[in-house]
Simulated assay, not measured.
Amino acid sequence: MSPTRRKGLLLALLQGGLLLSLAGQLLLDRVTRPRGWILTQPVDPHLPIRGRYVNLALLVPAPEPPAGQARPWSGERLVLHSEADQVRADLAGPATPRSRSLAATPQGNLWRLGPSVAFFIPPEGADPSSRPAGEQLWVEVTLPAQGPPRPIRLGVRRGDGPITPLELR
């Protein structure tokens, strides 16, 4: 085998190993980390070629501020946790590392998390972000130890009923 082929094969094996380690980490997080449903607000990313994904802003119920403290207006940091299959938020304390909290902005009685997430949809599927009146789009997410939630699947809630997962595949 020539030295050039050997180097090419070594590079291919290295890239394959990196890809497999990332896939393994994501699968491990999905199995071991908490998960829950979170309300979404579809956002058009305003890109000329957007591909087949829906950009989702994540909305969580507003945590109550400590007694005697006014509700902050923006730039607050939240820590997410799963409670009864839904994502809830608590205000991050001064000792909470920035890597374990997310920036949020109040939006009524909800908080909009700073980074939106992309949910990729199949080429033949309809756009799930267009919902009739009375339906809310929800996304089931994995809550990693650091960083924004990772989307798993979409669901719809009609009124106060249960969340029904969408079959997009």
Results as ranks from 00 to 15, higher is better:
residue 107 Q to N: 15
residue 102 L to C: 10
residue 67 A to I: 03
residue 69 Q to P: 00
residue 1 M to I: 00
residue 63 P to I: 03
residue 84 A to K: 12
residue 162 P to N: 05
residue 49 I to Y: 11
residue 165 P to I: 02
residue 36 G to I: 01
residue 148 P to W: 14
residue 150 R to H: 04
residue 43 V to H: 12
residue 93 G to H: 05
residue 104 A to E: 14
residue 122 P to W: 15
residue 33 R to A: 09
residue 81 H to R: 11
residue 144 P to L: 13
residue 14 L to V: 05
residue 155 G to V: 02
residue 110 L to T: 13
residue 23 A to T: 05
residue 78 L to S: 09
residue 44 D to G: 12
residue 27 L to D: 06
residue 57 A to P: 12
residue 79 V to W: 05
residue 58 L to S: 01
residue 148 P to K: 15
residue 45 P to D: 14
residue 117 V to Q: 09
residue 119 F to T: 07
residue 112 R to H: 13
residue 81 H to W: 07
residue 85 D to K: 02
residue 10 L to T: 14
residue 147 G to I: 09
residue 103 A to F: 12
residue 75 G to C: 08
residue 116 S to P: 15
residue 55 N to Y: 03
residue 93 G to F: 07
residue 63 P to C: 04
residue 166 L to R: 12
residue 78 L to K: 12
residue 154 L to W: 07
residue 10 L to N: 07
residue 52 R to D: 07
residue 87 V to A: 00
residue 37 W to A: 01
residue 112 R to G: 09
residue 23 A to I: 06
residue 153 R to P: 01
residue 4 T to W: 08
residue 32 T to Y: 00
residue 135 E to C: 06
residue 3 P to S: 15
residue 116 S to L: 06
residue 48 P to C: 08
residue 131 R to A: 04
residue 79 V to C: 05
residue 77 R to G: 02
residue 161 G to S: 12
residue 51 G to K: 03
residue 157 R to Y: 04
residue 46 H to C: 08
residue 147 G to Y: 05
residue 164 T to D: 11
residue 144 P to Q: 14
residue 31 V to I: 06
residue 74 S to N: 07
residue 40 T to C: 14
residue 19 L to G: 07
residue 157 R to T: 04
residue 50 R to L: 04
residue 151 P to S: 03
residue 122 P to Y: 15
residue 78 L to A: 09
residue 10 L to Y: 05
residue 165 P to Q: 05
residue 65 P to S: 02
residue 47 L to T: 10
residue 142 T to A: 05
residue 74 S to H: 07
residue 129 S to Q: 15
residue 55 N to H: 10
residue 39 L to K: 15
residue 53 Y to L: 07
residue 138 W to D: 02
residue 104 A to Q: 13
residue 27 L to S: 06
residue 72 P to H: 08
residue 35 R to I: 00
residue 5 R to C: 08
residue 73 W to Q: 13
residue 132 P to R: 11
residue 113 L to R: 09
residue 21 S to K: 08
residue 162 P to R: 09
residue 16 G to H: 11
residue 70 A to N: 06
residue 135 E to H: 10
residue 98 R to N: 11
residue 113 L to C: 06
residue 166 L to G: 01
residue 30 R to Q: 14
residue 146 Q to W: 12
residue 38 I to K: 02
residue 53 Y to H: 08
residue 30 R to C: 08
residue 56 L to K: 06
residue 42 P to L: 05
residue 75 G to K: 13
residue 126 A to S: 15
residue 58 L to M: 06
residue 135 E to R: 13
residue 117 V to D: 10
residue 68 G to Y: 00
residue 40 T to I: 12
residue 120 F to L: 10
residue 167 E to H: 09
residue 151 P to W: 01
residue 133 A to P: 09
residue 84 A to G: 01
residue 8 G to N: 14
residue 87 V to P: 00
residue 101 S to I: 05
residue 67 A to E: 08
residue 59 L to S: 06
residue 31 V to D: 00
residue 35 R to C: 01
residue 47 L to R: 14
residue 40 T to R: 13
residue 63 P to T: 06
residue 119 F to W: 10
residue 119 F to V: 11
residue 103 A to K: 13
